[in-house]
Write a protein that binds this DNA or RNA. Structure first.
Length: 291
DNA sequence: AAATCGTGGAG
DNA sequence: TCTCCAAGATT
């Protein structure tokens, strides 16, 4: 039997309301699921969809990507954001070819060892692609658990041990059911129990939600710091990389200098990109995406 | 363990 | 306009 009281209602809700996302289809490969999970890190589904389609069309298997220079992955990544994820995916492909015979590993430990694959992504791939029994703890699930079980509007800034233990305690005993339960509660957070305006009227577990039963008390404590973006190194890095992405080949430094007026910050951002392996400084003083 | 790392859409 | 935030990971 299930360890939690709303499993049946949640699974029924999912069956009726789940989005038809391509990486959820029965014929989706483990590689395509891994690609989707990396792309979805901090990035909305609507923006991932076209990028995922294009990526999978070009590199249907890890081996297809592994033969490319990493810069091609960065270029293909386009404006998805956090371009180091493109590098991670490229490194994943090569590792999978070299150490796993070209097949995405199925165990949590092997997945967790891949670059850019943390606790959430390893659990997600192990569960969604291979039917493993793992607690899924992404931002959606954390929000649902915070409300339904803890009775607060938002979870802590960073995942805690308590959250992991709660998620694991709720996991259905059967692996197949657990895997379905994981996507279901995630989908609930994405579609109903949203951050801004939760649709409690449509929620299948509203009658058991501690936060709603408590009268939906507002978030306590300091407002969670808004990440001002304008003027940061991140913005400069973004502009620099955009020039290299949109260029056919190597770019003269003068072209990079036009993207930001402040030379100190500009150089710092460029150096950081080089250190991260996202930009290749060439002998002749030009810059390019890495080979 | 707090800071860093992009981008764009919604309210 | 401006703030928030979107399937996190890494150092």
């Amino acid at each position: 039997m299930d360890q939690n009281p709303y499993s049946t209602a949640l699974l029924a809700w999912y069956q009726a309301n789940a989005r038809d996302l391509p990486w959820r289809r029965p014929d989706a490969s483990a590689w395509s699921i891994l690609v989707s999970e990396i792309m979805l890190q901090q990035t909305p589904v609507t923006r991932v969809l076209p990028a995922w389609e294009a990526w999978m069309r070009r590199w249907p298997t890890p081996a297809d990507l592994a033969t490319e220079p990493s810069g091609e992955a960065v270029r293909m990544w386009n404006r998805l954001g956090y371009p180091r994820r493109a590098l991670n995916l490229h490194a994943c492909a090569r590792t999978i070819v070299e150490r796993h015979e070209g097949e995405v590993p199925s165990s949590y430990q092997d997945l967790r060892a891949l670059p850019g694959v943390g606790a959430y992504t390893a659990a997600a791939v192990a569960s969604f692609a291979f039917g493993g029994r793992h607690a899924i703890l992404d931002t959606n699930v954390r929000r649902v658990l915070a409300r339904a079980h803890t009775g607060v509007e938002y979870p802590p800034k960073t995942p805690t041990k308590a959250e992991t233990e709660l998620a694991e305690s709720l996991l259905p005993a059967d692996a197949t059911v657990a895997a379905r339960w994981g996507v279901a509660i995630m989908e609930l957070g994405a579609l109903v129990c949203t951050a801004r305006s939760p649709a409690c009227a449509e929620c299948p577990i509203a009658n058991q939600c501690a936060w709603r039963l408590a009268g939906k008390p507002a978030h306590e404590g300091p407002p969670r710091r808004g990440q001002t973006y304008a003027g940061t190194d991140r913005q400069v890095r973004g502009r620099l990389l955009a020039v290299l992405r949109d260029a056919e080949g190597p770019v003269p430094k003068d072209d990079l200098d036009t993207v930001w007026h402040e030379p100190i910050q500009r150089e710092r951002a460029l150096d950081a990109l080089v250190a991260d392996g996202l930009v290749d400084p060439r002998e002749d003083g030009t810059y390019a995406l890495p080979g």
